[in-house]
Design a protein around this nucleic acid. Structure first.
Lengths: 226, 226
DNA sequence: ATAACTTATAGTACATTTGACTAGAAGTAG
DNA sequence: CTACTTCTAGTCAAATGTACTATAAGTTAT
């Protein structure tokens, strides 16, 4: 297997997580190279011997230790001067993960890897800020048309947790009874016979996202819209 | 200006047109190289000295002679064996044009350039069929959420022309009075005081898409949905 | 000239969905 | 038992979508 990389082509990934009521993004601190010490999007070089999807998966895996559920190509960024001293086009990917499932392990070339709240992201090198902004805009759109939000919260969740996720991503308040009704009518949530625990008020029911049911509905032409 | 190309990176463009009631795509016939004689998507190499958007525009211009209104990056395609003998990743773009505005002029390396009805596209080399399928799926989605269809029909058009465009792209019949009402209520069509000519029945009013009005509505948060 | 035909355009009636809001149920804490 | 919190069900008017019908405005054939 060739380890040779295509030197004009990299991948940078936006890895989003969600904790409580805030959207997070995963950054790594460069341990070497021109931008040593700076926080940046996790990225790497594409090898001659792997597809770009494999490449994105490998880089993601190197960072989180686990291969992920939802990884998608966003867009290529290729202005002439985006990278110093060298012409590098990068393909941006994004993934949605549950932070609690992963123990962050900085790889060889990274000094550290940490989750940052979207509102507290430090200055980023190259055009990484533009990539992040593009990703957030895309996420905001995508989350309303496809049930991808479930990748950010635990398998079993309450309707309020789901609502708070949407409120965080869309940056707007939603009406509780109406949100509830809308989601329930779509009919792809399965009620677990379990309730929330350790809360000092009436416990909410836990639900899980039923992928099979959703797939069936989608084939029938019923689409997720929020 | 450096004419050097990045040899692992190309661009392939989907250029869609619309005639009467059928969606068309622009193909070029290779005049040299391994796939000589074959029809394929118009494509070329990215130069070190140009951004990928500039590159896409240059290639499109080389083929149609005119710089275009609506050109967007679709996705990168990069499976290891998509191109013979060499590792080439391609970035796919797409554009929507009015075929009647252009006189097709095959460039240096192309033997011919022609519009093909979507249903009559010949066998395509490499992964171009996959790119086309992806583009069609994307177009079908996009056309329902943004008023891009107007790039495919003449400046002045009748509501039936517009409806037929949507029917062709979405591959489904629409109800005339309802389509009409929905479009009109969005309030970005301007009535020209002109009517259809040379038809053997009552002439329909001609409309034009009012970009400024649409922009204003969009800023107000009103979105196009069909 | 008039009847038959074609397409444009307006309107109607009913079902469904949305948005704002009310109200009771279920559970906790003092 | 009472006060408090959140969950969950429901109401109602307004807006929208769907499937039609009806009429208008022309063209063509007789």
């Amino acid at each position: 297997m060739s380890e040779l990389v295509i030197d004009a082509l990299s991948i940078d990934s936006l890895i989003f997580g969600f904790k409580k009521t805030e959207l997070d993004v995963l950054l790594v601190q460069h341990g070497e190279g021109i931008s040593k010490g700076k926080w940046a999007l996790p990225g790497g070089w594409i090898k001659y011997s792997e597809s770009i999807d494999d490449s994105a998966n490998r880089i993601l895996k190197d960072l989180t230790g686990v291969s992920n559920i939802y990884l998608e190509q966003l867009k290529a960024f290729g202005s002439v001067s985006r990278y110093p001293n060298k012409r590098v086009i990068t393909i941006a990917f994004y993934a949605l993960v549950k932070p609690e499932n992963y123990i962050l392990q900085p790889g060889f070339t990274a000094a550290d890897a940490q989750w940052f709240k979207i509102s507290e992201v430090p200055e980023l090198p190259y055009d990484h800020k533009a990539i992040l902004d593009h990703g957030l805009r895309y996420l905001k759109h995508k989350v309303r048309h496809e049930p991808i939000g479930f990748n950010l919260i635990p398998k079993k969740f309450t309707l309020l947790q789901l609502q708070e996720l949407y409120e965080a991503i869309l940056e707007q308040k939603l009406d509780k009874p109406n949100f509830r009704r809308k989601i329930m009518k779509m009919d792809f949530l399965e009620l677990c016979d379990e309730k929330q625990t350790a809360v000092s008020h009436r416990a909410a029911s836990l639900f899980r996202f039923d992928k099979k049911k959703y797939k069936m509905l989608k084939e029938k032409g019923i689409t997720f819209e929020l």
